[in-house]
């Protein structure tokens, strides 16, 4: 049984059908890619998984339990973390604070304890700082640790975005176009980080990406969406030769 199961999921906004009866399964410990042309419903899918959208129909199971009705922050507690396509960092806070916020649900300090900063609260901050430093070390962010995120370059912000999701120590990591707008070198770095996350931390990853080279190299399985419908599912080799995928990407006359 997979770590995440999507069953007959539909999402409608009025008359617009964003997702139409989509079902797939993500196996534990794999890199699973969602691809498809612009507007195919990839980000909508992630929004349903992380709880920002409520699906009109269908069900989402995480480790066998339904999370369809859970609020976003409850899903985070279960171990689902997400990096956004459009950077959604907290621009006035330092890299360190952004990552510490990523650990929010792993910490306990309440209002009073935090305000007094005594004993346990202080110990907890230090303890989680250590965990955050591991992420900083992992993503090579040491030199910008104390810099407000808003002043960083685009590529670095993307990396912090991944770092914040990673700080949660998630079981399922949703990456929405982590390489969009990057040059080749930055893309290679990011791909290396993703592989490292996968291999060292055994995290299951759902990846949305437009760079087909990256997708084919990294993924164990790929699902292809087009106009909200799942048109193909399989290993990279299967997807590359699938006539419906070629049709969706290149148009009808190119289809064999």
């Amino acid at each position: 049984m997979g770590i995440l199961q999507v069953k007959n999921l539909s999402l409608r906004f009025g008359g617009v059908v964003a997702l139409d009866n989509v079902s797939f399964e993500v196996k534990e410990g794999e890199i699973f890619s969602l691809i498809g042309p612009n507007g195919a419903g990839k980000t909508s899918m992630l929004n349903c998984i992380s709880g920002l959208y409520k699906p009109s129909d269908g069900e989402i199971l995480f480790k066998g339990a339904s999370i369809t009705r859970l609020k976003p922050h409850r899903r985070t507690v279960l171990g689902i973390a997400r990096a956004f396509q459009n950077i959604e960092l907290f621009p006035h806070l330092s890299v360190l604070d952004n990552l510490m916020l990523g650990r929010h649900v792993r910490m306990k300090t309440g209002l009073l304890a935090g305000g007094l900063y005594w004993g346990k609260a202080q110990k907890e901050e230090v303890e989680h700082r250590r965990k955050v430093e591991e992420v900083i070390d992992f993503l090579e962010l040491e030199h910008v640790r104390n810099v407000p995120v808003g002043t960083l370059s685009y590529g670095l912000q993307k990396r912090v975005e991944v770092g914040r999701a990673l700080a949660l120590e998630p079981e399922l990591l949703l990456l929405d176009e982590p390489m969009a707008g990057m040059n080749n070198e930055e893309k290679e770095d990011m791909a290396r980080y993703i592989i490292d996350i996968h291999e060292e931390k055994k995290t299951t990853i759902i990846l949305i990406e437009h760079d087909m080279g990256v997708v084919m190299d990294l993924s164990n399985h790929i699902a292809v969406l087009d106009f909200g419908k799942l048109i193909a599912y399989g290993t990279p080799q299967e997807i590359q030769t699938n006539p419906r995928v070629i049709e969706a990407y290149l148009g009808e006359e190119h289809a064999v």
Binding site: L89, H104, G110, L111
Partner: peptide, 25 residues
Amino acid sequence: NLFRTRVGRAFIAVRDRDIAAEVIG
């Protein structure tokens, strides 16, 4: 003290990006 610990940081997160704040829990 409040704004260097968990709750205070969460307040700032709510101010800066409420959607992201929700998704990080």
